[in-house]
Design a protein around this nucleic acid. Structure first.
Lengths: 357, 357
DNA sequence: TCTTAGCACTCTTTATCACCGAGTGCTAAA
DNA sequence: TTTAGCACTCGGTGATAAAGAGTGCTAAGA
């Protein structure tokens, strides 16, 4: 059932106000607002109905109303007004980005910090690899005594390497053969296309270097499969400033959940189609976080890679503003990475020499 | 002035108890302890003296005593009894390590999480490179159209690489020459030994590839200089469980300080000689953290690299236990890395393709 | 001279109670 | 359908009292 325009107007006013004040909103307060041409009694009646419809809640009899999760949902979907960034804001965002992005090594963690600063909320950032990732090219360099360096260039132009010890004595020619075979058979394949059948075919063609094939292929598989890197989370303390977390117990539950659940479950919640997504309260990944919401958005890093930034805050957060800032930030990032052309993020996954290698 | 044995005994008892209960300790409570053969009145007198000497504090007239920072200092330096890990504890630590360390990519962040779990306190972890780091070997691989991959093997056996675009057309032979020059002149040198004079010498010998030398050298310099990687911090929520942070304001100040100061200032506070270090309250890096202490310890990763793990907690933390666990953990880690021989941590610094490269 | 029992004093904590004010729901009138 | 009016509910505040914990000091005892 569709709400009347007046109900919507009132609901929007209530959510707007509650977001600003964090206090239950009274009918009188609404009635006094400039373009509300009804008495408080009328508003009261409407509020009573909105309550039975499930869009508002009442902490106790003699308090005002606060939005319910359903109320927020309706608000973010239909009611809220677009927030336009002021030029001051865009300027300060741009400045901060230029300043911080110099430390290019740590783009992802820096991005997180910036977002947190900008929104005054805890933020997380991560980079995710797409399933389309393939190997573009292999190189094998004979290093000193008994080991070689495997250099793998990926389709996103990042380069990974691994030092591998030789189980048997091999000549440079053996390695060259292996390299040729790999470049012929294993390039341009996505993770899914790596079959056991392929493995045995490569092994057969690899001559003396056959014993190396499993190690190499395992490395490749791990590179292509690894879909996300480290998740960075900062600014948790910012939450404690919000009135909903003045109750220490809640604050703690909340922060623990942030540490554990959010970080591991969020990426899964990201729908493939929309860029920006808002998870309100109970729609959230963890039940602990009933009064916590998440706003997240994607940005492009380069071929085959995407980044994810998001903030976590009380359900009563300024969705319009936060969403606007986050999107602006993401657009800027995408542009930066596009301009740099060579994909700037690399080493998001740390390469590694396994003990058994 | 040296304290009498009895004063020390009483002080120790008070600190021990306060660490357990977080409540001011009363004379009567001490007097009732098994091997205290004095009346509460006697204890009271001693406590009064310990207070004037600055080892104890009194929240208000009719409360018991709590240790002052000086009291804690004395306690950790002289009074506290070694905590011996039970076999249960060592077993569970070992298990956790085996389990978690499989995700070898993320050793450092995993280490942090583990330490936090083990101590039930916020923990941080980072890896630091020593100044002794040198380049062991260069390789240059001509990649596709107009770019090549620079592969650098460092003295800690980690391998770094960078994709560099060619400003001019170069042949494989040109690159080979450059590689030979680099391997002859720039290997085995620490960051300090890289001089401008060296740069020009290399440039002169590099033939057609001379224009590449600055880019290459800049990369090398950045690798050798970069003394520490990302600092990982987890488990902040654990602090909120501690009674000293039931005051939200304090909690927030504390957590903000953790985000900013600790992470950036801690490494500086690490003395080169001792392995484990305890910073009590005001000795701390940030003034905000008067009632917060830090315990940190180092572990060896491999030639030229060290790791740092630490926990942050209320001044009233169980130093003996925490120190014991941390040390055990660090020893285990050192052993792990030693066994693996090829240094397992790599990619702590993310390699990167600069836009201008 | 050192120890200890006893007691007055201080200060915090907790409970109780009354009161105020904010806000609602309902009724009746416009 | 809207609105004015009013009774009712309930949380918040502040004052007061009572209880409890612990100390410091004094004076007696070893």
């Amino acid at each position: 059932m569709e709400l009347s325009d007046r109900k919507k107007k009132i609901l929007r006013a209530i959510v707007d106000l509650y977001i600003r004040t964090a206090e239950p909103v009274a009918s009188k307060t609404i009635a006094q607002m400039p373009d509300m041409d009804f008495s408080s009694a009328t508003i009261r009646n409407e509020m009573a109905e909105l309550t039975t419809l499930g869009y508002l809640e009442q902490p106790h009899t003699s308090a005002g109303r606060i939005p319910s999760p359903a109320g927020y949902r309706l608000y973010v979907d239909e009611l809220m007004q677009d927030y336009r960034l002021s030029t001051d804001e865009t300027k300060s965002i741009n400045q901060a980005m230029e300043l911080k992005m110099q430390e290019v090594d740590k783009v992802v963690s820096q991005v997180g910090k910036l977002v947190s600063q900008m929104t005054n909320l805890p933020a997380y950032a991560m980079a995710a690899r797409s399933a389309r990732l393939t190997v573009k090219r292999f190189d094998l360099i004979l290093a000193d005594s008994g080991s070689f360096i495997l250099v793998v260039m990926l389709s996103d132009s990042s380069v990974k390497n691994k030092l591998i010890r030789l189980p048997v004595e091999l000549t440079e020619a053996d390695l060259k053969l292996l390299g040729a075979v790999l470049n012929a058979s294993v390039t341009e394949l996505t993770a899914e296309q790596l079959s056991p059948e392929l493995l045995s075919r490569v092994t057969r063609s690899a001559g003396n270097a056959a014993s190396l094939v499993p190690v190499v292929m395992e490395f490749v598989t791990s590179l292509l499969h690894q879909e996300r890197g480290e998740v960075y989370m900062t600014g948790q303390a910012k939450l404690l400033g919000q009135p909903e977390y003045h109750d220490i117990d809640k604050a703690q539950k909340m922060l623990s959940a942030l540490d554990e659940d959010v970080v591991s479950n969020l990426p899964a919640a990201l729908s493939p189609d929309s860029r920006t997504q808002i998870l309100v309260g109970p729609e959230n990944v963890s039940k602990e976080l009933r009064d916590t919401s998440v706003v997240m958005t994607k940005f492009d890093i380069g071929d085959g890679m995407q980044g994810l930034i998001g903030v976590v805050g009380p359900t009563r957060m300024d969705y319009a503003q936060i969403t606007a800032r986050l999107s602006y930030f993401a657009e800027n990032l995408s542009r930066m990475f596009q301009k740099n052309q060579t994909p700037a993020i690399e080493g998001l996954e740390n390469k590694h020499n396994d003990p058994e290698a």
